[in-house]
Amino acid sequence: MEPIASFRLTAAKRSYAVRRVNFAECTHILTKACQPKPGDLVLARVQTLGSHKRIELPNGRKATLHEGDEVLLAFGNRYAPDQYEAYVPDTLEACHMVAAGGIAAKAVSWHDRLSGPTAIEPVGVLCRSDGKAVNLKEFALPTIACQMPAAVFGVFGTSMNAGKTATAASLVRGFALSGYKVGALKVTGTAAGGDPWLMHDSGATQVLDFTDGGLATTFGTPLDTIVGTTRNLLRTLHKSDCDVAVVEIADGLFQEETRQVAASPLMHSLFDGVVFAAGDALGAVAGVQSLEKLGYQVLGLSGAVMRSPLAVREAILNVDVPAFSLADLQHPATVSTIMEHTLSGRLAAAQ
């Protein structure tokens, strides 16, 4: 362990993932015999640029990276079939920046359209004077005790890039245009600012994600942690007077954490209804049927499948739910229908 000059931390490029950290608490650095844990902060030096040539700063700007730059990242596992599969290494060995939002991990596989990961050399894990590593969980929003928003809607999907975020953002806009004070929440995935910015731009009065709960990523995170974080973030939205919340669950139903979340009675109890985003007709049908078997009220289909009228016709022939374009989700008439289904669902559950 050795002291770290504050100007060195100021000069380093800080990532979105570490935006909640008070760096005044980072007075020392562990450079040897350290086993990183998910959420630990790392000062690293860019060795070789790969597919990630920019880093997302806390304000959302994508800063260009150069070999030799020092960056402030958080260790975390990554699950991204269209990008990287990566894991927190056991030592401070050379590894990779596997997400522009600022995730350090050892990449073990990646999509063949990528050139390969950006290589980094960890300088050390940031710590306090007592040698305790600084971790994102210490800067999570405080646990509060209050009610949930009056209505909560989830967005599940078949996979990465199925259109979940666009679907969630359109729901946000639809509720906002209908006069609701709507909050948005992303509860699983990899730290990145793009989705929260889109929710803000779509009319959400407050947007939170799992990084506000002290998590750099959720791949490999225990279910009880995800559930507890989700419930606390929803309460935080309610405390901000949001009467409706839209919750995006990342990745697809085959991803382990998403599968556990979908099957969890505690998570299920949070949602008044869900919309399913899919990229094709078969995925749409399989996803809706899977969620209905778990007891969810599936309000409709959306996502990338909506680009193909033929695929939409194939899907709705096999499931008894409507298909919504992004424009549909933003229309007050759709919002009114969704809220009517919510009320009828509550009445049925009470009987």
Rank of each mutant, 00 (worst) to 15 (best):
residue 17 A to Y: 12
residue 17 A to R: 09
residue 17 A to D: 15
residue 17 A to M: 14
residue 18 V to S: 05
residue 18 V to A: 04
residue 19 R to T: 07
residue 19 R to V: 09
residue 19 R to C: 01
residue 19 R to D: 03
residue 19 R to M: 11
residue 20 R to L: 13
residue 20 R to P: 00
residue 20 R to I: 00
residue 21 V to K: 03
residue 21 V to D: 00
residue 21 V to L: 08
residue 21 V to T: 11
residue 21 V to N: 05
residue 22 N to A: 07
residue 22 N to S: 07
residue 22 N to L: 00
residue 23 F to P: 00
residue 23 F to A: 02
residue 24 A to S: 10
residue 24 A to K: 00
residue 24 A to P: 00
residue 24 A to R: 02
residue 24 A to T: 00
residue 25 E to W: 04
residue 25 E to D: 12
residue 25 E to C: 01
residue 25 E to H: 09
residue 25 E to V: 02
residue 25 E to M: 02
residue 26 C to K: 07
residue 26 C to I: 03
residue 26 C to R: 12
residue 27 T to G: 04
residue 27 T to W: 01
residue 28 H to P: 05
residue 28 H to N: 08
residue 28 H to M: 07
residue 28 H to C: 09
residue 29 I to A: 09
residue 29 I to G: 06
residue 29 I to D: 05
residue 29 I to V: 13
residue 29 I to C: 06
residue 30 L to R: 12
residue 30 L to W: 03
residue 30 L to Q: 14
residue 30 L to V: 13
residue 30 L to M: 12
residue 30 L to T: 11
residue 30 L to F: 07
residue 30 L to E: 07
residue 31 T to Y: 03
residue 31 T to D: 11
residue 31 T to G: 04
residue 31 T to P: 02
residue 31 T to I: 09
residue 32 K to C: 12
residue 32 K to R: 10
residue 32 K to P: 06
residue 33 A to C: 12
residue 34 C to E: 15
residue 34 C to K: 05
residue 34 C to Q: 15
residue 35 Q to K: 09
residue 35 Q to C: 11
residue 35 Q to D: 13
residue 35 Q to G: 12
residue 36 P to I: 13
residue 36 P to F: 15
residue 37 K to G: 03
residue 37 K to P: 00
residue 37 K to T: 09
residue 37 K to A: 12
residue 37 K to F: 11
residue 37 K to I: 07
residue 37 K to H: 11
residue 37 K to D: 09
residue 38 P to R: 00
residue 38 P to G: 04
residue 39 G to K: 01
residue 39 G to H: 08
residue 39 G to Y: 05
residue 40 D to F: 13
residue 40 D to V: 06
residue 40 D to P: 01
residue 40 D to R: 04
residue 40 D to W: 13
residue 40 D to G: 09
residue 41 L to A: 10
residue 41 L to Q: 05
residue 41 L to P: 03
residue 41 L to G: 02
residue 41 L to F: 06
residue 42 V to N: 05
residue 42 V to F: 05
residue 43 L to Q: 10
residue 43 L to A: 04
residue 44 A to W: 08
residue 44 A to D: 14
residue 45 R to H: 10
residue 45 R to Y: 12
residue 45 R to G: 10
residue 45 R to E: 15
residue 45 R to N: 13
residue 45 R to A: 11
residue 46 V to M: 10
residue 46 V to F: 07
residue 47 Q to V: 13
residue 47 Q to T: 11
residue 47 Q to R: 15
residue 47 Q to D: 09
residue 47 Q to H: 10
residue 47 Q to G: 06
